[in-house]
Simulated scan of single mutants.
Amino acid sequence: MAMSSTGRSGRRRGETQTRDAIAFAARAAFADVGYDRATMRSIAAAAGVDPALIVHFFGSKEGLFREVTALPPEMGAAMAGLADGPRQEVGLRFAQAVVGMLENPATRPVILARLRSAASHPEAAALVRELVSRDLGLLTSSLTDDRPEARAVLAGTQVVGLAFVRYVVRVEPLASMDAAAVVDVLAPTFQRILVGPLTD
């Protein structure tokens, strides 16, 4: 008969598994309720560990937030790579990339955690600014020398608006719209913002 594993320390799993469980629970909590409302105790409970283990692995709630909301390096590389390919289709490629990241269960919580927390948490606000100015700026600068900074911010407003309306407050009909349809609707707007004339 197999013995059941009990105990209160949270060390039933290996350290890597425990750390990953905390990160997963924290990312979900920050995405669902934002930085202020996500408590160390609730995150620990969701991960099935003692709250002291969060401090052990991440140092603090701030350190935990910073680590679990870091964008995977491949996301930045994917954004930079969008400049490759036909210029007349860059809006479509960008829309596909954005919707793809928001539909992906692995990356959506990272973006939503930043957005939900940005209004009240300076670190989260800085991460959102970084996404707009640096990551999108790399793309727009590689496409044109006509106001790339402004284009990055304008594209960022569309990304943030989409994420907030479709995935946070879930306004219909956008919330239930098929992902491919969202791409089709956004692609012309992104095309104009990224490489089209910004004024008549």
Rank of each mutant, 00 (worst) to 15 (best):
P73F: 12
L138V: 03
A119D: 01
Y167N: 08
V128L: 02
L131P: 11
R134S: 11
A83E: 14
P72R: 11
S117P: 05
P72H: 14
Q96S: 12
S120Y: 05
M101L: 15
S142G: 10
V165F: 14
L71S: 07
S120A: 12
A80D: 06
R87V: 08
L115S: 13
S117I: 10
D135G: 03
T107I: 01
G85A: 08
V99P: 07
V110D: 13
G100P: 11
K61A: 02
G161N: 15
D146C: 06
G91V: 12
G161R: 06
E89S: 07
P109T: 02
G81L: 08
L102G: 10
L143W: 01
G85Q: 06
T69M: 03
G156V: 05
V160A: 03
L71N: 15
A106C: 04
F65P: 10
G63R: 10
A152R: 04
R129A: 13
V165P: 04
L154I: 10
M75V: 10
R129H: 15
L154F: 06
A119Q: 05
G161E: 04
L162V: 12
L138Q: 04
L162Y: 13
D84G: 06
A113L: 02
A77P: 11
A150L: 12
G156S: 10
R151L: 11
A125S: 09
A125Y: 15
P86S: 07
Q88P: 05
A113C: 03
G63V: 03
L139M: 01
T140F: 00
R93P: 02
V99T: 07
L136F: 08
T140D: 02
R151Y: 01
S60R: 04
M79C: 06
A126W: 07
M79F: 04
R129D: 13
